[in-house]
Structures are given as C-alpha cells and as structure tokens.
Design a binder for these strands. Structure first.
Length: 559
RNA sequence: UGGGGUGUAGCCAAGUGGUAAGGCACCGGAUUUUGAUUCCGGCAUUCCCAGGUUCGAAUCCUGGCACCCCAGCCA
C-alpha cells in the first residue's frame, strides 16, 4: 500500500537538497535543536524540533539535542529534564547525541585565546554602562574603547586572570575587535566573555567566566559538525558575527546559519519570558497548566503528540510573519483523536428525567458501540433505568424553529436506548426547569424504530442511579486579544480571558469511565474529547476537555 | 535620509517566465442513532501599489508603500 505522504516543499528542504546535490556533504548533514534550559518547551519550539529532527531524518542525517547553557543565572536541571521528556514525547530520538554547550567550555576558552593571539579580541575594562554608551545608536556609529589596542600579551594575561577569578563580576569582558562603526550593531566589538560567579548546573564552580551566545553558538555547531544551523529570524543580524567567529579561528568544520520565522499562534503568547511571567504571577497553575501552549500543558490537556507534529508540518517553514489561527491546531487534534478515541457518555450539566412508564425498580444494560465508525473497538454495556440525566442544553421549554432536541410533547432518541416523549416539566421555586417527565416506547429498544418513524434528535444520557460524579474543566484561550501584548501587570490583567478555565462540578459520567486511565483520550459523545487529569482520584474524578467537537448547532443558534 | 528582512484569499502556504496547488476557516448539498465523522460542490480573472521589459510576468527591472527584527556583560 502506497500512501501519498506529501512532504510539503519549503525553502530549507530545497536548500539542503541543493547542497547535497552539489556534493557538499558527502558524510551527510547534521542539525541541532539548541534550547536554553531556562523554561519549558512550547509550541514554537515544537516547530523547531520538527524542522531540525525532521530534515535530519529525511536526508539521512543526524540531529543533536544541545543545551545552550551559557548563562547559569537562569538555567536549571528542572528545565533540562523537562526538555528531554518533551522532545521524546514528540517522538524524536537524539540517540547518543545529547550535548551541552558547557561541554565545550575549555575548547571555547582555547578558541578565545586564539582570537586574542591573532589580535582579534581584547580585554575591555569598561563597565556595562560605558560599553552601552560607546556603542552608538541605530543611526550613529560607536566609539572605540580605550582598551581596544592593548597588545596580545597583555590581553592574554588579563584574560587568564579573568578566568582565574582575580577580577570582580562585571569588571572586565573579552570583546571581539571588529568595527565600532559597523551599521550592523552586532559587529560593534561584541562581548565574547563575561565574568559571573554563579554555580553552573553542569560545570559547577569550575568557571567564573562564561561565553556569550554569539561566540558559543557557531563554535558549538562547528565542534559537532553541524552543517545546517537553523534558527529564527531575530538572529538574522547575528549571522554576520556567526560567520566572523568561524572565519577568525580554525574551526573543525564550517556550519552555515539559515533563519526561518518563528511561530505565533492566535490568542496565545509564545515567548518564554511571558510564559514564565504567567507561571510566576500565578495566572496559571504551572508550566503544565492545560491552558499553556507548552508541550507539557498540551500533553496534560490531552493533545496527542502526532497532532502537534502534524500541525508543524501544515504551517510550513518560511520567512514570513506567521500568525496562525488556533483552528488549525484544533483541527489537527480532532483529526488525530477521532479515529482512535473510544466514545462514552457523560453529562456536563445534568437535568433529571423521569421515565414515568418505566418500572420503578427495574434496570437493564444496553449495548453501545465504542466507536461508530470502527467496530474493532468493540461494544460496552451501558446501564439504564427509570431516572436518567440529560444535558440541560438538550431540553427547551419553548424551543426555536430549528431546535430538534427534547421539548414538551416532542419525541427524541436516547442514543442506544429508547425513544422518549416529554410529557411534563417541573419547575423549582425560581421558575427554572428542574425535572422533566417522559414516557418511553418499549418497542424502540436500542434506539431503533421498527415502524420506520423518523426522529430528528438523538441525545446522550446517563443513568442517575449508576452514574459517576466528576469535575470537568472546560478551556478557552488564556487571552482575549488574538495577538496579546502586555508589559505590565495591569496590562496582563486587562488582556486575560477571565473564562479561560471553567470548572463544571457535579457532572455525571457513565460507569465504564471509572476505569479511564490518566491522559488517555475519550470522546464524550456530542461534547468533545476529554482525558483524565493527573490530579484525578477515585474520590474526586477530574476531566479536562481537550477540544470540543465541531458544533454546527452553535452557529445555527446564533442566527 | 543606520542595517537586516518580509509582502500570494479571513489565516497558513505552494508557485522559481507559459497563464494561481493544498490545508484551516467559511458557504452550500448528500449520508448519519454524535447537529460529530465521512462524502460531494463552492470559495484569488489575480499575487502590496505604480510604472517598465516580454508574444507572455506572482515570478525579471525601476520607483514607491506597509509591516517585522537589531542599540544585554540574555539566548
């Protein structure tokens, strides 16, 4: 069987194809996914992971997982662990290619020494403030540091002393000697090393100087033999420095950087800084809150990893500003879940229905399919008795034209059970409907109509006597604004969607759901896809709605 | 009037001088014991704008316009 798996063409694939065709990489290509372990991975990282691991796979190359851990101030082992878990969850395997930029600290130091010896780097005693003010602006050139012309011997001695811990944090840096008047600000004698006494999660206290990204990244790529260093567009201007570094040392290989645009998703933020803020402000319960666009959040929400990989392939890779509608993601999730998720009944907002002509103490089990389109998933027995719950939304006392669920005098099908007709309505002291009375037609067992009569509505139900209680959490986007922006706590407050998590208590589930495992997908018919939350217990069952079903009625109702 | 980028439908996106793929969304219609799924059909006479080159331009040239990124001892 040949399935038409269309791998969409994008410019990076084309570039690699061309490179391979030109014979540039006889030993194969290599890529890397280089996260900084200072936060959890999010949907934007998924795009990069799929790209880097994906093209390596397609072209018979390899992909490294490299922690870009050059800033001990913000990095931690917690993040290192979560990142590995998330990459594996997405289905990618780095095999023996787990690396840390910190593995290369000694080699990086040696390269820096080489740069000093060739007169291409110098130790600068200016303070951070002074460096900033002498850097110039976007439209005016910077001015040379008074330390720019120190000779290599002196620089070398100073740099060694920096490493030996003889100077205070922030008192000196190593700078590349390039061009203070360059129109590209990244080339105005960028800092290569800073002094920072901070225990590193990997190297402990062996270093008190740490290399900067622009120095570390090209050399790490070169050390690993990375051929295609793929990064996001905001590093475009850094490419000149990336190349400069590689051209001014003798690197073990020559990697090239190519940039693509980062993903932004409607109604969400995809920035580690802002996500960190949501966590630290307690806006969400943690990095894995089901509303978070983090991989751990989406996992807890019930998104299957294939859906995320599929999403990444559908959105493509370009250099355009990419602002994707959430419907694309939701569609991928539904498409992944629909063929496999077993069906079950659950009622979110129960309305008691008493079937008056059904015997008081009788109960029976009715057969229901676990998947209407896939008999191989089998059947289950669902208990039925005189009192059941239906969805409040499935009854209207005074229904509009196109409503074809239950209403006074109307007949509907209870899925897999019987046809029932509403005979009367009972109100509470506030005038709200609190109970509905029906009669059932014993001839219609299983929901069949032997007389061929047509029933427009089919609704779900659960037996009052047998049902399980549960709390169900329904999610909406975290933000009101499709393109949320906030710089302060008040702005954050204003843009937050107050209804992003709706907790519905006292929901009723069919008894078979008592066995549902944490995280495994279930479709509650007519309501959506759900999964059991990790915090769920037998005493207090908690379900997350992963995504609702497509709801045409909701649109009809609007009109 | 510093530098680097990007403009194809509501949102993504293919297209690489030969007459606008595909997905999502949307709108019909069929089937349906989930208003789900599935199926079938519709959805850019035009590619940011204006000129030019060419038998022929989304693709090449010129000039505009709009938007994004860069002034960390962050990545």
């Amino acid at each position: 069987m040949t399935e038409d798996v269309v791998t969409p063409s994008h410019f990076i694939r084309q570039l690699i194809s061309k490179d391979i065709a030109a014979g540039r990489y006889p030993d194969g290509i290599a890529t890397r996914f280089p996260p900084e372990p200072n936060g959890y991975l999010h949907i934007g990282h998924a795009k990069s992971i799929c790209l880097n691991f994906g093209v390596a796979q397609e072209f018979g190359g390899v992909c490294f997982l490299r922690f870009d851990d050059t800033n001990p101030d913000r990095e931690s082992p917690e993040f290192v662990e979560s990142i590995q878990q998330d990459v594996r969850w997405l289905g990618f395997d780095w095999e023996d290619r787990l690396r840390h930029a910190s593995d290369y600290f000694q080699q990086l130091f040696d390269f820096a020494v080489g740069l000093i010896e060739s007169g291409n780097a110098y130790v600068c005693d200016l303070s951070a403030d002074e460096i900033r003010t002498t850097r110039g602006t976007l439209t005016s050139p910077g001015s040379n540091s008074p330390f720019r012309d120190r000779n290599p011997e002196e620089n070398l001695e100073l740099f060694n002393k920096m490493r030996a811990g003889e100077y205070d944090d922030g008192s000196r840096v190593l700078r590349a000697r390039i061009d203070m008047a360059s129109p590209n600000i990244h080339l105005r004698d960028p800092t290569l090393y800073r002094i920072r006494r901070q225990t590193h999660h990997n190297t402990g206290d062996s270093w008190c100087i740490y290399p900067m990204y622009d120095f570390t990244h090209p050399l790490s790529d070169a050390i690993e033999g990375v051929t295609h260093s793929l990064c996001t567009l905001e590093f475009e201007d850094n490419r000149a420095l990336y190349d400069w570094v590689l051209e001014h040392v003798s690197p073990p290989s020559r990697p090239y950087q190519t940039e693509f645009s980062r993903l932004s998703l409607e109604y969400t933020v995809v920035s580690k800084r802002l996500l960190t803020l949501l966590v630290s402000r307690g806006v969400v319960s943690g990095w894995d809150d089901p509303r978070m666009p983090t991989l751990s959040g989406m996992r807890r929400r019930g998104f299957p990893p294939e859906a995320i990989v599929d999403f990444c392939s559908r959105i493509g890779v370009t250099r355009n500003q990419q602002h994707v509608e959430i419907s694309v993601l939701e569609n991928c999730v539904r498409e992944a879940l629909n063929p496999t998720a077993p069906r079950a009944f659950g009622v979110l907002r129960p309305l008691r229905v008493v079937i008056e002509n059904y015997p008081e103490n009788e109960e029976e089990f009715l057969e229901a399919q676990n998947h209407p389109n896939d008999p191989s998933l089998g059947v289950r027995q669902v208990p039925f008795c005189r009192e059941i719950f239906i969805e409040q939304d499935d009854f209207m006392e005074d229904p509009p034209r196109k409503f074809f669920r239950l209403a006074p005098g109307r007949e509907v099908r209870l899925r897999y059970a019987y046809l029932v007709t509403c005979t009367s309505v009972i109100h509470d002291e506030n005038g709200n409907v609190c109970e509905v009375r029906c009669t059932y037609d014993p001839q219609t067992k299983g929901g069949n109509t032997p007389d061929g009569r047509k029933v427009k509505g089919t609704i779900h139900w659960v037996s009052a006597k047998h049902s399980l209680n549960a709390e169900v959490r329904l999610y909406q986007p975290l933000f009101k604004d499709p393109n949320p922006k906030f710089d302060s706590d008040t702005e954050l407050e204003q843009t937050l969607n107050p209804d992003s998590c709706e907790t519905v208590d006292n929901c009723k589930l069919e008894p078979s759901l008592g066995d549902a495992g944490i995280g495994s997908p279930i479709q509650l018919e007519r309501l959506g896809y759900f999964c059991v939350d990790p915090s769920s217990t037998n005493q207090k069952r908690i379900l997350n709605r992963t995504v609702s079903l497509r709801d045409t009625w909701a649109r009809v109702k609007e009109k």
